[in-house]
Amino acid sequence: MGCCVSSGEERTDREPLAETRPRYSWEKKERPDRSQLIISGQVGVVVCRLPGQLSGRQFHIQDCRQCEIFVLDTTSSLTIHGCTDCTLVLGPCGGSVFVRQCEGCTVVVACQQFRARDCRKCTVYLHCKSQPVIESSHRLRFSCFQAYYDKLRDQFSSADLHPFNNQWSHIHNFTNQGGESDWSFAQETTPPITPPSEGDISGCGLTFQRGRSTVPYSVGPLARPTESEGCVVVMTGEERESRARELLTKLQDQVVLVQTCHSHFKGNEAQAFFGDHKSLLAQIKTGPCIMMELSGENVQQICHSSLEGVPEDVYHLSSGREEGERERETLANYLMSSLTM
């Protein structure tokens, strides 16, 4: 068998390729059952893929109408094409999610990349590691990913995503005409979806209840309350995530979570970004960390009392209005700069 298709000139002096040609990983693997990886042309039905059924495979949803589609597993790539009035709940995708020519859909999805083109009147509850992009779309509404099911946290890790690394609100519009007709932030903070009560999926623990979500609800920097006090909380150590979640549970409704990240700074990266903030820098140098920007009246005092009992060497909290202001600006700049390529 030949190596590649190519222009003819060279063909005669080419060595027998069968021996020289490398064997690629995709040639060795078994072909999956494609029918399990495509949902096409369904109308008015509930379709489910349960944890473990896809395990990071590619998935494609096409030309469905008035369906409820639950993909509670990891995927490597997701395309949603030509769907109308559907509800789509999609587990962590380690690659890109591409939504095209959809109308009237509600989409809950976590992914490495998010792209939408030629869509209308869709609401997206989004977790995205990079900057989400839209093109030639109208009346899209975005909100923060909000969902929980028992295997979801582990699936984030399998997909190489972290629930706190969420850039959902940094939407880039390739066809920006100005105004809000193309996209806006949704007012709703939880998806209006009722988990199916029958079938195997009912045992997955799926819920959209506020406060249960695997991804903490953040408003994004564009919706940061103006004039209110700001602060940065850094959480390090083995238990950083559970401690951060505990803090957020305690804080709920008292202050606003603006944005979050999970970082592990290498080399002099931490110094380069946070060199001007000695106490914060010292904390993030101790290892992987969760950083959270919070905002609200007396936010620092509220955080301080909510952190009672947490060992002092595993967290940093901005101290004073000025420091809070400076630190949140630096964190915001750091997060913006992480979106460049």
């Binding site: 490495q112 590691k129 990079s130 900057q131 992009v133 880039h172 390739f174 460049t340 390529m341």
Partner: peptide, 9 residues
């Protein structure tokens, strides 16, 4: 860095 790639603007 592949897993950090953002759509190119």
């Amino acid at each position: 860095e592949i897993k950090n790639t953002t759509p190119t603007q």
